[in-house]
């Protein structure tokens, strides 16, 4: 496997696929500089107006701030919950382990609309709550639990229990060992899990819109803008910035994950 032959067909195909995958993104970035309120070809001319107007687009900025708030809060919680569970799953004999893992992976395989509708009914009808951002954050924790558990489990399975045993032999109790040994060792995985959860939360629309009250997140606001095309170019400008920032975040998360599992044989990486 470590003696790659060159494959002309493979390389050409990969380049074509990359063009296909990036073309829509470049088109959007192109339109964020287009001097026209209509998002259609042909292009009219170059402008930075949409980026200048960003500062005044109050609702857009508020929804972006909401999204950051929901994203940070839900990701921190998801990482905390997920990594505790991952420790239990990898380090201990947990009764009903498979049942728990199956249940925890359900959010991953459930269509967003079913999740959103079920939560809407539960929040409104059973609990009688008004929809708010705390509920959106709670729902985002749920959809990020599977990925955080998997990422942290993969990391914990990689290193031997020797370090923890040594700490305990030297007199550290269970929780001190977790905090002083296990936590630092799994740190790269925790950061990767956080970034994965944050990007998921930041981009979630299909489920979030069903449980959105008066305060909107960025994707929900962007969707509502589609009916008001005049304000769309500003949103596209913001979207371009976000796409570039999230691309950087993905590279960082991936780099951390790889760095974290660098010593793992390839077969065990997922």
């Amino acid at each position: 496997m470590n003696k790659p032959q060159t494959s002309i067909f493979g390389s050409v195909y990969f380049v074509l696929m990359a063009i296909f995958l990036y073309l829509p993104i470049f088109i959007l970035i192109l339109f964020s500089f287009n001097d026209s309120t209509v998002l259609a070809f042909p292009l009219k001319g170059f402008t930075l107006d949409w980026y200048r107007q960003l500062g005044n687009a109050r609702e857009l900025l508020i929804s972006a701030r909401n999204s950051v708030w929901v994203g940070v809060l839900s990701s921190i919680l998801a990482v905390a919950l997920g990594s505790l569970a991952a420790i239990a799953m990898t380090k201990h004999h947990v009764p009903a382990r498979n049942l728990f893992l199956s249940l925890a992976s359900v959010p991953l395989v459930m269509p967003s609309i079913v999740l959103g509708v079920a939560m809407l009914v539960f929040f409104r009808k059973v609990l009688g709550l008004d929809l708010n951002m705390w509920l959106i954050a709670a729902a985002h924790v749920l959809i990020s639990i599977p990925s955080t558990i998997l990422i942290v489990m993969a990391r914990l399975a990689d290193f031997s229990a020797n370090l923890e045993e040594a700490a305990m032999d030297l007199g550290a109790n269970y929780w001190v060992t977790l905090i002083k040994v296990t936590l630092p060792i799994s740190f790269p995985a925790l950061v990767a899990a956080f970034l994965t959860a944050f990007t998921t939360s930041f981009d979630e629309y299909a489920m979030t819109t069903l449980i959105t009250g008066t305060d909107t997140t960025l994707p929900v606001y962007l969707y509502s803008l589609l009916r008001f095309p005049r304000r769309l170019p500003v949103a596209v400008a913001m979207g371009s910035i976000i796409m570039i920032v999230s691309a950087l975040l993905v590279v960082l998360a991936e780099w951390l994950r790889r760095w974290g599992t660098a010593r793992t044989p390839k077969e065990e990486r997922v």
Partner: peptide, 18 residues
């Protein structure tokens, strides 16, 4: 390969309208 998958879903669908 995976970076596009993490950028805004809505904006990418919007791009296909264009």
């Amino acid at each position: 390969l995976i970076i596009p998958a993490w950028t805004s879903f809505l904006l990418r669908v919007l791009a296909w309208r264009l």
